[in-house]
Simulated assay, not measured.
Amino acid sequence: MDTVVAYNLIGGDEDDYMYDSIDIRPDICPICKNRIKDVPDPYYKVKKKGTYVTTYDHYDIVSEQFRKFCIENNYQNLRFTELVRSKGYYVLEVGEVVYLDEVRGHIEFVNHRDCCGSYDEIICPPLYVSKDRNPPLPKDFIARSYYRYGSFNRKSPVLLVGVETKRKMKEYPLKGLYFRKLFL
């Protein structure tokens, strides 16, 4: 029987792009146009206010309440880029990495690119944490997947939280958060 060791944290949709045009995006490979890094636009204006929302081009935006929760719980390797046109909102970047199990999760890697080392698509909702590539996971953490999942310029890492972190988020309470089980 599989054991739940973490959760994929999911927020609402922002219903907009951080970058309107692929021609001006500093976060993509200039050759293949795949998203390869995070470059938040501090002048982006939030359209749909919430605790945690994601833009169509997969930037995670969190509220001041979410940021405060993370600071109070001393979660490490988080970066909050303040959105100057939307006071109280931040682009969240997570530095801590957890490897997911590509084999057990049946994750499909499509068309590797030599120009930047990315794939055009990484497909399949993650379900399993790698047993071999991670130390034992703590119960209280916030991390991201090593790979960016999705297609082309709409790829992003999966946000993961520990079992205890989920409980704390529900008690805080942070509204509009959804959790998908990840197994060992």
Rank of each mutant, 00 (worst) to 15 (best):
E82A: 06
E82C: 01
E82M: 07
E82F: 05
E82H: 07
E82K: 09
L83H: 00
L83D: 06
V84E: 10
V84P: 06
V84C: 03
V84T: 07
R85G: 03
R85F: 00
S86G: 03
S86E: 07
S86A: 08
S86P: 10
S86V: 04
K87Y: 06
G88H: 05
G88C: 02
G88D: 03
Y89R: 03
Y90E: 05
Y90N: 00
Y90I: 00
Y90H: 00
Y90R: 05
Y90W: 04
V91T: 05
L92I: 04
L92S: 05
L92R: 02
E93H: 01
E93R: 04
E93S: 11
V94C: 07
V94E: 04
V94Y: 00
V94D: 00
E96K: 10
E96N: 14
E96P: 02
V97N: 13
V97F: 12
V98S: 03
V98F: 03
V98A: 07
Y99G: 00
Y99H: 15
Y99V: 04
Y99I: 05
L100K: 04
L100V: 12
L100F: 15
L100D: 14
L100G: 11
D101F: 08
D101Q: 08
D101P: 01
D101T: 08
D101V: 03
E102K: 14
E102R: 15
E102M: 13
E102H: 13
E102I: 13
V103C: 10
V103N: 14
R104W: 14
R104P: 05
R104C: 02
R104G: 02
R104K: 15
G105L: 13
G105V: 10
G105D: 12
G105I: 06
H106W: 12
H106S: 15
I107M: 12
E108N: 15
E108K: 15
E108F: 11
E108L: 15
E108M: 14
F109C: 05
F109N: 09
F109L: 13
F109Q: 12
V110D: 12
V110Q: 11
N111E: 08
N111H: 13
N111S: 12
N111W: 08
N111T: 11
N111M: 01
H112Y: 15
H112V: 02
H112I: 00
H112E: 07
H112W: 13
R113Y: 11
R113Q: 15
C115G: 05
C115V: 02
C116T: 03
C116D: 14
C116Q: 09
C116V: 11
C116R: 08
G117N: 12
G117E: 08
G117A: 07
G117P: 08
G117M: 09
S118F: 03
S118A: 15
S118L: 04
Y119F: 14
Y119P: 02
Y119T: 02
Y119K: 10
Y119A: 06
D120Y: 05
D120W: 08
D120F: 10
D120M: 00
E121L: 07
I122C: 12
I122E: 12
